[in-house]
Computed example of a mutant assay.
Amino acid sequence: MDGKPQWKQVFTPGTSATSCWLWKLAKAHALAHDSGYHQLISHWLRTHCCTEPYIIAANRQLSAMHPIYRLLHPYFRYTMEINALARIALINAGGVIESTFSPRKYAIEMSSIIYGLEWRFDHEALPANLISRGMAVEDPSAPHGLKLTIEDYPFASDGLELWSILKQWVTDYVSHYYSDSSLVESDEELQAWWTEVRTVGHADKKNEPWWPNLKTTEDLIHVVTTIIWVASGHHAAVNFGQYAYAGYFPNRPTITRSKMPTEDPTDEEWKHFLEKPEETLLRSFPSQLQATKVMTILDVLSGHSPEEEYLGENLEPTWEAEPNIKAAFEKFNGRLKELEGIIDGRNANEDLKNRNGAGVVPYELLKPFSTPGVTAKGVPNSISI
């Protein structure tokens, strides 16, 4: 023995080694497709892309002094700018996504088709999203009114805490200006904003029955909470952990360069796989250029700048001028700090095997605050990267 693997001796069809290498190869292909779905649907479509109609309509229909414009402004900041940059270098034809992720030239077409088939505003609120995916059922006796079908589901557990905190902040703010539901229905600017979101921003879905009405204070609270959740918590959860999970590309390849071999004994690819399975796997991984591009982009996307504006951290001047709103914001900030401790406690709980144990990374993506850099935690106000 010279120390080299003796594939011809131990690696023959039907052996456990064959199954093992096939499993590794199949997993690489599955992860590549999952990476494409994550980047184009969970990330680009459901956060960056679908937030644009809310922003454009707000700038067209709400005056700068309108209370809902002043509430939403920090959660919209920088998003149109970062989306413009994405269209120049990331999702453009022949750009980074098309050259390094599995859908290749069909990337934006896939995103568009799934938007048409699956996206609906009423499922973007976290509780409704969990129910629609079969991850929770309604249970009035449970915390947040939901019972998780997988109790140890970190995103859902931490996300529902954050959703509740956001909803309380929005409730305190909206109720101050709209103490009676008649004020919502009679607010012409507000109604024009929501009409444009539905009929212009999502013109192809304007007649869908699932659009929430905007007639009561409760309607307004739900709509605004959903929009802020998407821009803050949802985006943080799908974006800032990307480098931690996929920076080492064999852990989560974004593309495969070869097809799965068939088990046809006359197929040359199958013969090569049987003789040199490791080489077949390596050939399927992204090229050095593709891997370098992905690592660089994910490092940028996952990093917080020193000037990052985190959820509940900075009191807007217009909020500070109103004592009731200032008090509500201070309560909001205090609850977010409490959430940091709750998440730390969950990550230290040895009974929660999806966030604690040997080889398990603590789940911190929804911890509200962070230091600068790639930290896999921190929830900024807005989609700014």
Rank of each mutant, 00 (worst) to 15 (best):
Q6K: 12
Q9V: 15
V10M: 11
T15L: 02
S16H: 05
W21R: 05
W23N: 13
K24F: 12
A28W: 01
H33Y: 07
S35L: 04
L40R: 02
L40H: 06
I41L: 10
S42L: 04
H43F: 01
L45I: 04
T47S: 15
T51R: 10
E52S: 05
A58I: 05
N59Q: 14
L62I: 01
L62Q: 03
M65L: 00
H66I: 03
I68G: 00
R70W: 06
L72Y: 05
H73D: 14
Y75T: 01
F76T: 04
R77M: 07
R77W: 11
N83G: 07
A86Y: 14
L90T: 11
G94T: 10
V96A: 13
E98I: 06
E109F: 10
M110R: 14
M110W: 02
S112W: 02
H123W: 09
L126M: 15
A128L: 01
S132V: 03
S132C: 06
S132N: 06
S132G: 04
G134M: 07
A136R: 11
E138V: 14
E138S: 13
D139A: 14
P143N: 14
T149F: 02
L160C: 08
S164D: 15
I165G: 03
L166H: 11
Q168L: 15
V174G: 06
D180R: 13
D180K: 14
S181G: 15
E185D: 02
S186T: 14
S186P: 02
S186H: 09
S186K: 11
A192Y: 06
W194I: 02
T195C: 02
E196A: 14
V197C: 03
T199N: 15
G201K: 09
H202W: 13
N207V: 01
E208Q: 07
P209T: 09
K215N: 10
T217E: 02
I227P: 00
G233C: 10
A236T: 08
A236C: 08
A237W: 05
V238P: 00
N239Y: 00
Q242G: 00
Y245F: 08
Y245N: 09
Y245V: 07
R252D: 04
P253L: 01
T256H: 07
E268V: 11
E269Q: 12
K271L: 13
L274H: 03
P277Y: 11
P277F: 09
E278D: 15
E279M: 05
E279N: 10
T280F: 13
T280S: 15
T280E: 12
L281V: 11
S284T: 10
P286Q: 10
S287H: 00
Q288L: 10
L289Y: 10
Q290W: 01
T292W: 10
M295Y: 03
M295W: 07
T296Q: 14
I297C: 09
L298F: 15
S305K: 11
L311P: 03
N314V: 13
N314F: 09
L315N: 06
P317A: 04
T318D: 14
W319E: 11
A321F: 01
E322Q: 04
I325T: 12
K326W: 02
K331W: 05
R335P: 01
K337E: 12
G345Q: 08
G345M: 09
N347W: 05
E350K: 11
E350S: 12
L352M: 08
V360I: 15
V361A: 13
F369D: 07
S370P: 04
G373W: 07
V374I: 15
V374D: 03
V374G: 00
T375P: 01
G378E: 04
